[in-house]
Each structure stands twice: as structure tokens, then as C-alpha cells.
Amino acid sequence: MLIPHPLLGPRDAQEFTYLGDAALIDRPDGLAADAAERFFDYGYLRDNPPGEHRELWFHEQGDRSWLVVTRNITTHEIVRVELARDVALARGRGR
């Protein structure tokens, strides 16, 4: 697979390591009253749908950026690639 990196252009997927569902960006508040339940959900439960899947890839052997890759996991076609930083900022994460 080639991942079209938003800054570097097409890169071999072998340069990346894979973390999982992009929902992992939304880390729960550890001080919330229901933190235990939310961390169980965050740590263990996944939607795991067929078709389009948003997921986190780390360009470990490249510029060390985290990417949010939208990929059709039924065909392996890559639909969209964004910098995870941009996604996180757009979702209201502080830094």
C-alpha cells in the first residue's frame, strides 16, 4: 500500500506503524466521574466496521508525524489522509 502523506507525497506503508481506530484521538477525561467506564470503552471496545475506516498511522521511518488515514478496509483503497494534529485540533483538543 502507498499512503499519500499530506506533506511528503506517496510513501510506502512499510514506513509506518499502525495503531488502530482514529477514535483513539478522543482520550477520555481521567478525572470524570465515569472515567473507569469510559476508559474501558476507550481501551477495549472498537466499532470495527467493514468499508470506510478512519485509523491512526505513525510515520515512524519518515517525518514521525501521526496521520489519520481513511481507508476502505474491504478493498484496501485509501480514500483520504489528514495530519492527526489537524484532526485533533478540529475536534477541540488543546495541543
Binding site: 481506530d21 477495549y44 472498537r46 466499532d47 470495527n48
Partner: peptide, 16 residues
């Protein structure tokens, strides 16, 4: 499993 159990509204601790 995730696809089928989603029909019962369940999310499972797994990835395919």
C-alpha cells in the same frame, strides 16, 4: 464477529 454482533447493538473488544 463485530459485524454480526452489531446487529444486537454490541461493540466487541476486537479488530478484524
Amino acid at each position: 464477529s463485530s459485524r454480526v454482533m452489531a446487529m444486537a447493538g454490541m461493540r466487541l473488544p476486537m479488530e478484524s
